[in-house]
Design a protein around this nucleic acid. Structure first.
Lengths: 275, 275
DNA sequence: GGAGCGCTGTATCGTATGTTACGTATTTTG
DNA sequence: CAAAATACGTAACATACGATACAGCGCTCC
């Protein structure tokens, strides 16, 4: 089974004429980036003419150059998105091999945070801690527990935190209470739920600031969101993993708590007195 | 010092208008491949028009789109040629190293799994997948969302999965339905809740098999539990982290799903038909 | 409430890019 | 060694891509 273009080339290289073989070699040498550049650049790097490059990709079975490039890009995307192939990983102490699923989860978290700036986290935390308005949280079928988890914590350090639960009609009616001073935290990963999208749109129209937790393919809600957190979800399982989003949520909780330290601890003490 | 485009974007994202921010987000979400495609494809993915994409790259300081693409390619080339620098020197967009909290969370997971044998996980999964009895899930104040999350998934691949919600009196009465063929999954970390402990004890007396998710100090429920999963919870935050337990839960969900593959997929198909 | 500014999308334009035709060079074969 | 076939590059072509001008719209700030 031939999976990558590199293999395909290696297999047919011998059956190629001299010029095309040079093209093949230069492509392998700096794989796959040369193939993503223009035909002119490729041909210059290989020291052959443009038509030779085109004949080369034609011989590989592609209809035209763009098709060849698309395939290369897809291949690259697969490589980048599953860093499982990465050789360097912190060696698991104790000698026991870490299960693939844990491996993937840890990678997901690292990847997620790699694309998440401190600045962005700080901004979101500030928005949540800024006590000017109310905070609403809601999630989809599988992610609603994350919304609950976050709500459970935030509700302790500050007032006016509401988790939107129950039937759609229930929380849709809560829109009436939302304004531009308020924040709506939404969790939505594939398959994106229409009800949530509609809700987000209406909230957006009312000027509500939306913080979206989604996957790397971005829920359509991203269109309405002030802040978007894109977590990696791919794991060797029948389900997507929300673990990375969970960790981001915990970090936000921690940051918000720290910012509200003074009032927060006062609240907590008052709460304990109430028991 | 700004080395990657991702950093550059993270820094200027806030100063961007809505449309360009959407472009930035989609680029970050599938970094960097979208940026290597044509302007038309990029704009379609971001849900904006082509000129917005061009204004976006212009704002990043590039003279034109090809220049932007070249920079992305160079960056990618550097990454591909030395995969070592990728993990050792993770170019986090914020410019800083991995945040301490993420560091601690990752450590927690590794530690948690180090003390968790495959055998134990397999046993628990078998217990959950063994379809002889019902499955109940419940959690404490902060961990109940984890119970919900697990219940949401398990309920799809097998029947008779119940999350115990609402007031204490509610689920206490459900004890009547529980017997020795049933499994009760409990999440309980500090500060351990009396109500949960009482509930676990009564369930144990009825012969219910208890699977306990707790922290490293072990909830008192451990005494009644058939299986105990002790997750690390310490992080530099005012709160404990449930992330490790979350990951264990996800892994169990995955394993159970795999074991029930045949019946599970039949169930899923039947469910989709019902829509 | 009105005027000004800034952002965004539509439509058009110029051009760089991939593609093809054709002539020359090079190798292969009888 | 000659003749044919294949390979390669030059040059002309068409398409699709990036770039730009302009108008509509919403937003902010007097």
């Amino acid at each position: 089974m031939i999976s990558s273009i590199a293999e395909l080339i290696a297999e047919r290289m011998d059956a190629m004429p001299a010029g095309e073989r040079r093209a093949a070699q230069t492509l392998i040498a700096n794989y796959p980036l040369i193939g993503l550049k223009t035909v002119a650049e490729f041909s210059a790097a290989a020291g052959v003419s443009s038509p030779t490059i085109l004949r080369f990709v034609a011989r590989l079975g592609f209809q035209n150059y763009p098709e060849f490039q698309s395939t290369l890009q897809d291949e690259l995307a697969a490589q980048l998105q599953s860093p499982a192939t990465r050789t360097l990983n912190p060696p698991s102490p104790g000698g026991g091999a870490t299960p693939p699923m844990l491996e993937a989860t840890l990678d997901n978290m690292r990847e997620t945070f790699r694309h998440l700036s401190d600045r962005q986290l700080a901004d979101i935390a500030a928005q949540l801690a800024g006590r000017r308005g109310k905070t609403f949280l809601i999630g989809g079928r599988f992610t609603d527990p994350l919304a609950r988890y976050m709500a459970a914590h935030l509700a302790i350090v500050q007032p006016e935190v509401f988790h939107l639960a129950g039937q759609e009609s229930m929380w849709r009616d809560r829109l009436i209470d939302m304004g531009k001073r308020d924040v709506l935290v939404i969790f939505d990963i594939r398959r994106y739920q229409d009800s949530l999208i509609r809700f987000a749109e209406k909230a957006h129209q009312r000027g509500v600031q939306i913080v979206l937790f989604t996957d790397q393919w971005l829920s359509p809600i991203a269109r309405f969101a002030r802040h978007v957190i894109a977590g990696r979800t791919a794991v060797p399982s029948a389900w997507d993993s929300s673990a990375a989003l969970f960790v981001v949520a915990e970090m936000l909780i921690a940051t918000v708590t720290r910012q509200l330290e003074v009032e927060g601890s006062r609240r907590i003490r008052a709460m304990e007195d109430l028991r």
